[in-house]
Amino acid sequence: MWIEQRIWTARDGWSVSGSRDGAASLVLYFAAPGSRPAETILTDLRQAYGDAPILGCTTGGEILGPEVIDDSVVVSALGFARASVRVTAHDLSDMSQSRDIGAALAQALAGPELRAVFILSDGTRVNGDSLVAGCLGAVASDVVVTGGLAGDGPRFQSTAVGCDDAMRPGRVAAVGFYGESLSIGHGSFGGWDEFGPPRTITRSAGNVLYELDGEPALDLYKRYLGDEAQGLPGSALLFPLSIRPMKGDAGGEVVRTIVGIDEESKSMIFAGDMPTGHLARLMRGNFDNLVDGAGRAAEAAAVVAAPCLALLVSCIGRKLLMGQRIAEEVEIVADVLGRTASLMGFYSYGEISPHGFTSKCELHNQTMTITTISER
């Protein structure tokens, strides 16, 4: 297996690192919104890698090696000796289609040697929980499912995904990895601290939260945020909610981030489901814990085979909270995985990975999620 990486910036154009040995099996890219026209990115990559499958999305920030970058396009091209890949995509016009599209993607990729599925989805039009559930229902239980929701910085206006075509909104795409020679690792951890009392979700519909403890959810949330409420929904990235079943233990918790608000209904729209009857609790970030969480994710995802590509999908909320210290979470991942790992990733509106405690694949928010790919 060989890995070649590229980065485009307005100042330097394209820069290339790594080594190429033959035709590319797969090309992955993550691009800052507005950094470079989608059609131009596709043309550039076609010129470099011919007819290899190409998959990419917009971001809230890019990762290449141990660095966090803005306003760039980062690329990893892979060449497998024995393994193979296949890509597929569907367009999404309404959140209600999320489960069906997840199932359709998985069915298109199904095969006896399927080892893993990596999903990239529009980040503002999808119900990530339903998308994941649909995918899991159509693949074998031993298939690793990971990925992320495309980003648009802190704006939450428009995200885009491309699959052998120019990126566009409303797109959901996936790549399947096939072959016994593959080693696939995964890890996902957060590091946020809970505060305030737990509250019961008393009215919701899918990923829309209407009431907590019988009170309009948006009103209650604004009281906690105080002056920060003026920056909603962007400021909500700094104060996500953890949710868990009423009788669930701490290991079953997932974190949810707001992607939109409705002032008229006093509701909040989340990246994933907010089931009625679950307990919800506010969270806030602790820098040291967030960095430690990234390191734990890397430890879980580490594989023996080398070289490997490490795909990092971290939440835009972590980036906004940590500011200039955000590089620390990538640096610790690089330290844990070592020099034989080539890192690339993006800051997202949602992370898809098996849970760090339950091993059940779910949509996460505010986590560092890592998928490692290597060939024995």
Score class of each variant (00 low, 15 high):
Glu4Lys: 08
Gln5Asn: 04
Gln5Glu: 15
Thr9Trp: 08
Ala10His: 12
Ser15Cys: 10
Ser17Glu: 15
Ser17Cys: 10
Asp21Ile: 00
Ala24Asn: 06
Val27Ser: 05
Ala31Gly: 11
Arg36Asn: 00
Ala38Ile: 01
Asp44Arg: 09
Asp44Lys: 03
Leu45Ile: 06
Leu45Val: 09
Ala48Ser: 11
Ala52Trp: 05
Thr58Ala: 08
Thr59Gln: 02
Thr59His: 06
Leu64Gly: 08
Glu67Phe: 11
Val68Glu: 12
Asp70Cys: 11
Val73Gln: 07
Val74Cys: 14
Ser76Gly: 10
Leu78Gly: 05
Gly79Pro: 07
Thr88Cys: 10
His90Trp: 03
Asp91Arg: 15
Leu105Ser: 02
Leu105Gly: 01
Ala106Lys: 11
Ala106Tyr: 08
Ala106Phe: 09
Ala110Tyr: 04
Gly111Leu: 12
Glu113Thr: 14
Val117Cys: 07
Thr124Asn: 13
Ser130Met: 12
Cys135Tyr: 01
Gly137Val: 07
Gly147Thr: 09
Ala150Tyr: 07
Gly151Trp: 07
Pro154Val: 03
Arg155Thr: 10
Thr159Phe: 06
Ala160Phe: 04
Asp164Leu: 09
Val172Ala: 13
Ala173Asp: 05
Tyr178Met: 08
Leu182Ile: 00
Leu182Asp: 03
Ser188Gly: 08
Gly191Asn: 07
Glu194Ala: 15
Arg203Ala: 14
Ser204Cys: 01
Asn207Trp: 00
Glu215Asn: 10
Ala217Leu: 06
Glu228Asn: 09
Leu232Arg: 05
Phe239Glu: 03
Leu241Gly: 06
Ile243Trp: 00
Arg244Ile: 13
Arg244Pro: 05
Val254Pro: 06
Val259Phe: 11
Ile261His: 05
Ser265Gly: 03
Met268Gly: 08
Ile269Val: 15
Ile269Ala: 03
Pro275Phe: 00
Arg281Val: 06
Asp288Ser: 04
Asp292His: 09
Asp292Phe: 02
Gly293Cys: 12
Gly293Glu: 11
Gly293His: 09
Ala297Lys: 02
Ala298Asp: 15
Cys308Met: 14
Leu309Thr: 01
Cys315Leu: 04
Arg318Phe: 00
Gly323Pro: 04
Gly323Asn: 02
Arg325Ser: 14
Glu329Leu: 01
Ile332Val: 15
Asp335Ala: 11
Leu337Phe: 02
Gly338Asn: 07
Ala341Met: 04
Ala341Ile: 01
Pro354Tyr: 07
Pro354Glu: 05
Phe357Leu: 08
Leu363Ser: 01
Thr369Trp: 02
Thr371Cys: 00
Arg376Pro: 13
Arg376Asn: 13
